[in-house]
Amino acid sequence: MTEPNERPTSASGAKLFKVAFDLEVERPNWPPVSVERLWGEKTDVKFEIRVVNTPFFVRGIAFGDLIQVRPDNERRDLVFEKFTQESGHSTVRVIIMREDSRERVEIKLRESGCGWELARGFDNYLAVDIPPTVEYREMRDWLQGRFAAGEIEIQESAISKVHQRQLPRFP
Rank of each mutant, 00 (worst) to 15 (best):
F56C: 05
E24Y: 08
N124D: 14
A62D: 06
R59W: 06
T54E: 05
A119D: 10
L23A: 14
V25G: 00
L143D: 11
E86G: 12
P31W: 01
R104W: 03
R93N: 13
E36T: 06
T84D: 09
G60Y: 01
G40L: 04
R120N: 08
V94Q: 09
R93H: 15
F80N: 01
R102G: 10
I130C: 12
V92D: 04
G88D: 02
L78V: 05
P131A: 05
T91L: 08
R102W: 02
N73D: 06
N29I: 08
F63T: 01
P55N: 13
V51G: 04
I95P: 00
L38T: 04
Q85A: 12
F63D: 10
R146T: 13
D44Y: 13
D141C: 07
I107S: 10
G121S: 09
I96D: 07
N124S: 14
W30L: 07
T43Q: 07
P131I: 03
R70L: 03
K82H: 03
W142K: 12
Q68I: 07
W116H: 13
V51A: 09
S157V: 04
Q85G: 07
T91I: 10
E135W: 04
I154L: 14
R37C: 00
D65I: 00
G150L: 13
N124G: 11
R140A: 12
I154S: 11
D100F: 13
S157R: 07
T133M: 10
V105Y: 05
D141P: 06
N124R: 13
R70W: 02
T54N: 09
E156L: 13
E26A: 14
D72Q: 02
Y125G: 01
Y136S: 08
C114K: 08
E48D: 03
A119L: 11
L143V: 05
S87E: 06
L126Y: 15
R102I: 08
G150S: 14
D129Y: 01
C114N: 02
V35L: 01
I67A: 06
N124M: 09
V45Y: 07
V128W: 03
R27Q: 07
F147P: 00
F56H: 15
E156Q: 15
D129W: 01
G121L: 07
T54K: 02
D44I: 15
E111L: 15
E26W: 07
S34T: 10
I130L: 09
D77E: 14
F122K: 08
D65E: 01
L109S: 11
F122G: 00
L109H: 12
P55D: 13
M139D: 03
W39V: 09
Q85D: 05
P32T: 13
E36H: 05
R76L: 00
R120V: 04
G60W: 02
I61N: 01
L78N: 11
E106C: 10
T133N: 12
M97G: 08
G64H: 00
E36S: 07
G40I: 05
S112N: 05
T54R: 02
T43S: 06
S112L: 05
F47K: 09
Q68S: 11
S87F: 09
E24K: 15
N73I: 07
L118K: 12
R140I: 00
S34H: 03
R50C: 02
V92M: 00
R37T: 05
F57R: 06
T43I: 10
K46Q: 00
L118T: 08
S34I: 10
G64M: 09
T84F: 04
